[in-house]
């Protein structure tokens, strides 16, 4: 079923069951957010993507990433209330992740350039904003290596018992989705160090560049039923081989 409503005065249509943030972005309306990624289910953690939703007599401030669109609502993305509360949540996040460029940029766009709060006393991962994108992605990819540990003011991201996990294949997807880039991944030409362990790379048979970690290859081949030699060459060399083949056929 289709629902119809307005965002900042603009008439929009969406499917029932869609989330407001996705609909807004599709219509070119930007709502800042940190913990949202289209590949995984929203959890509404960062509380930055705030909007004001008017429905009949009721006006509420809500996060847009996990708000299911409704027919006839009136959405405002930039009211004084929204700005005030977004600024406060960004100030809280700035205190947690003072070195994150993304957080600093968003905060300063909200007029927050310094925080009135003390630096956090604890944080096993400096600049982590606990958005759980890494955990959600790790789960979605079927690895289940990372987890959210503890709760409340002791919540953190990590591995069970803080020990290297057999499930981690070293794919570094966690880092690729991390908004503050706070996960430590160190690559050498032959090895990747991540989450307390080292993974050997498969090196491209043609150019010698790292293709994928061995463990990741084994996982991908067994899970996706890819041919054994799928990761023998890197994408670049695969492409140039393909174009050479193409060229030989055409010319």
């Amino acid at each position: 079923m289709t629902v119809q409503f307005t965002i900042d005065g603009l008439e929009v249509k969406a499917k029932e069951g869609e989330h407001l943030l996705d609909v807004a972005r599709r219509h070119g309306i930007d709502i800042p957010s940190l913990c949202h990624h289209e590949a995984v289910e929203p959890i509404g953690a960062c509380r930055v993507c705030l909007v004001e939703v008017r429905s009949g007599q009721k006006t509420t401030i809500t996060t847009s990433c996990n708000f299911l669109v409704e027919d006839g609502i009136e959405v405002h993305t930039d009211t004084a209330e929204v700005r005030k509360h977004r600024a406060m949540n960004l100030e809280l996040l700035l205190a947690r992740a003072p070195k994150s460029d993304v957080v600093r940029k968003l905060a300063s766009a909200s007029g927050v350039t310094r925080t009135r709060f003390e630096p956090l006393a604890y944080e096993p991962l400096p600049n982590c904003i606990l958005c759980e994108l890494c955990v959600r992605t790790c789960d979605m990819l079927g690895h289940h290596a990372l987890t959210t540990v503890g709760r409340g003011d002791k919540k953190r991201i990590g591995l069970p018992f803080n020990k290297p996990s057999d499930n981690c294949v070293g794919c570094a997807s966690c880092l690729s989705v991390c908004p503050t880039q706070c996960i430590s991944v160190k690559d050498t030409p032959t090895q990747r160090a991540i989450w307390g362990q080292k993974h050997d790379f498969i090196l491209c048979k043609v150019c010698g560049a790292p293709v994928i970690t061995k463990k990741h290859r084994d996982f991908a081949i067994s899970e996706k039923g890819l041919p054994e030699d799928y990761y023998d060459t890197c994408e670049k060399c695969k492409q140039s081989a393909a174009s050479k083949r193409f060229a030989s056929v055409v010319w």
Binding site: D139, H144, A145, L146, T147, T148, V149, G150, R151, L159, P160, F161, K163, S165, N167
Partner: peptide, 25 residues
């Protein structure tokens, strides 16, 4: 202990990471 959580995760059909995440909650 870790081993008990690993065995329990296997038995219940959840990941060990989830088991630990839930337990520490």
């Amino acid at each position: 202990p870790q081993e008990a959580l690993e065995m329990a995760a296997d038995h219940l059909g959840v990941s060990y990471a989830q088991m630990y995440g839930v337990a520490t909650f």
